[in-house]
Design a protein around this nucleic acid. Structure first.
Lengths: 126, 126
DNA sequence: GCAAAAGCAATAATCGTTATCGTTATTGAT
DNA sequence: ATCAATAACGATAACGATTATTGCTTTTGC
């Protein structure tokens, strides 16, 4: 992979505000610096960075979101505003081995996601 | 909600082979009995049944899958063949409360999904 | 500097899903 | 049984997110 100014800008955007932006959001933010960038370039580079393991795609149905933090952590989706927050506190899943026995195959990963209402939306509701 | 022959057929298909079919798969299977059914009708009824809580949509990025079993259980996605299997063995998640404290909001649900290689694909690899 | 390879913008195309619209089936009251 | 209200229907257009294509432009190793 060659060096690219646009890809740098995309990484910079992902690092600056870690709110797990969508491709569109990344596009809008990069455009502030490079107004000529194309949405296709954003998609292409996001896919490329994912393939390289430099960023991670968060499985959000309908609209994908991207996270530059590839360390092991969980995500909390606010069902009210749609924002995504990180959860770094340690979580343990018991019964994992039984699950593997039940399916008979090999479980390579277990993903946990939280849904609910975030602090701000909770406060706004009162 | 009025009674409908097509909706019955869709439920029947979902009940017959519980392999968590996609809308397309449901469409193909219902067509064996009702060749004139439209894909739109399938989507419409699947959405309706979901809204009624009669079936459940499995969050599979890109292509949704449907499950007539609304009881609490987990899903295992085979990354090789794409099939989805049920996991009924009990799982417990520790650290849940800490997560809620960390985000400050209210966690209403936690979803767990497994990924890996199913029994068949594992056997085929040897 | 120069040529090869990767990157780029613009845009067309694709995919899964949803909305629209004119017609048909189901229902509950007569 | 009839009839009007309304939900459901099929066909298809539209939609939003993403991917592929194409012809041109940077970047890089030499």
């Amino acid at each position: 992979m060659k060096h690219s100014t646009k890809r740098d800008a995309i990484c910079e955007v992902l690092g600056a505000k870690r709110d797990h932006p969508t491709a569109d959001m990344v596009y809008e933010r990069v455009r502030e610096k490079y107004p000529e960038i194309s949405l296709a370039t954003v998609y292409r580079n996001l896919a490329q960075l994912c393939a390289e393991g430099k960023i991670v795609k968060i499985g959000a149905t309908g609209r994908e979101r991207y996270d530059i933090d590839t360390s092991n952590h969980t995500h909390f989706f606010c069902d009210e505003c749609g924002d995504v927050y990180d959860v770094f506190c340690p979580l343990t899943l018991n019964g994992y081995k039984n699950a593997e026995n039940e399916v008979g195959g090999e479980i390579t990963s277990a993903s946990i996601t939280f849904h609910g209402i975030c602090r701000q939306c909770l406060a706004a509701k009162k």
